[in-house]
Structures are given as C-alpha cells and as structure tokens.
C-alpha cells in the first residue's frame, strides 16, 4: 500500500488540486501551544508519550500564533482572558481552525457565573467541540480527526 502502487510506471499522479491542498493541510497541522486550565493538562498528556499526537502530523506545538494553523482552546475562558484569546486568533494566518476542548470552552461547563465566558464561540468561530470535563486525550484526538475530515471536505470557492 502506498503511493508507489498508485503511481504505476508512469511516475505521475493525477488528483484534484483541492484534494492535494486539503491533504497537505491535514497532514501537517500545527496547533498552538496555548493552555488555559485543566484541559491543557490533558492536551499535554495527548502530546506526551502515551497518546502521542504526532501520529497525526502534530509533532509541533507552536508557541507563536503566527506559525500555527489550529487553536485548541483548552480550558475555561474568563472575561479577562477573552480579549487576549480573540487577539491571538486574529494573529493566526489563514487558513485557521479552532477546537473548543472541554465543556468550559464549549458552553461554560460547570461554571455558569459572572467570570466565565459561556462558550468560546462567543468570541471566535469554532469548528469542532470536544465534550468532557476534561475530555480524555482520546477524545481530543477524535476531535482532531473529525476536524481533518472537515478540512478534507473543504471546497475552493471564489470569495464573494
């Protein structure tokens, strides 16, 4: 199995540009090293040896938003932090995606109060929500694979 079989003798592969671009995007998606709360520890666990997210092309966590494609909002976003999160998101280059990891980032979780944003989707567009408090590393990986499926199905459209 592999690209060699598809190649045959010709050394040429034909594919759609769309598919090629999406394939390359999914296979080297760099998340931003950005932990907020408890979920960040599970995100670290997903990065570490036991779960090893690099199997999915994510060996690198970039601390700088300008080098990353994916923002994993891992944890609760407080009202004080919200402008910062938005600003970091704005600094990421297109194309960019966001995963809301954990109940807090998805909907406020157990903290229904004055200090916590009731879901990070109030400030940034979110592609995938991962439930759990905290989600297991497997759940996060599932979220990421789901995001890959979404990215693979992306269509090029002329901006209107």
């Amino acid at each position: 199995m592999g690209i060699e079989q598809k190649l045959g003798d010709m050394g040429i592969v034909t594919t759609k540009l769309e598919e090629l671009v999406n394939w390359s995007r999914t296979n080297a998606m760099w998340p931003m090293l950005f932990g907020l709360a408890c979920c960040a520890i599970e995100m670290m666990a997903a990065q570490a040896s036991h779960y090893d997210m690099s199997r999915f092309g994510m060996e690198l966590m970039r601390a700088s938003p300008r080098q990353s494609d994916l923002m994993i909002v891992a944890g609760r976003v407080s009202r004080k932090m919200a402008p910062v999160v938005r600003r970091l998101y704005d600094q990421m280059p297109e194309p960019k995606w966001a995963i809301a990891m954990g109940d807090c980032a998805s909907c406020g979780g157990v903290f229904n109060n004055y200090a916590i944003l009731q879901g990070v989707d109030e400030i940034i567009p979110v592609d995938v929500y991962v439930a759990g408090c905290p989600p297991r590393p497997e759940a996060l990986i599932h979220g990421i694979v789901t995001l890959y499926e979404k990215v693979k199905a992306d269509k090029f459209v002329t901006p209107t």
């Binding site: 709360a37 407080s78 004055y114």
Partner: peptide, 8 residues
C-alpha cells in the same frame, strides 16, 4: 486571567 468565580 483564569479567574473562575469558584467561590461565588
């Protein structure tokens, strides 16, 4: 930046 209002 992570103030959660737990006590309240």
């Amino acid at each position: 930046y992570l103030h959660t209002g737990v006590e309240k």
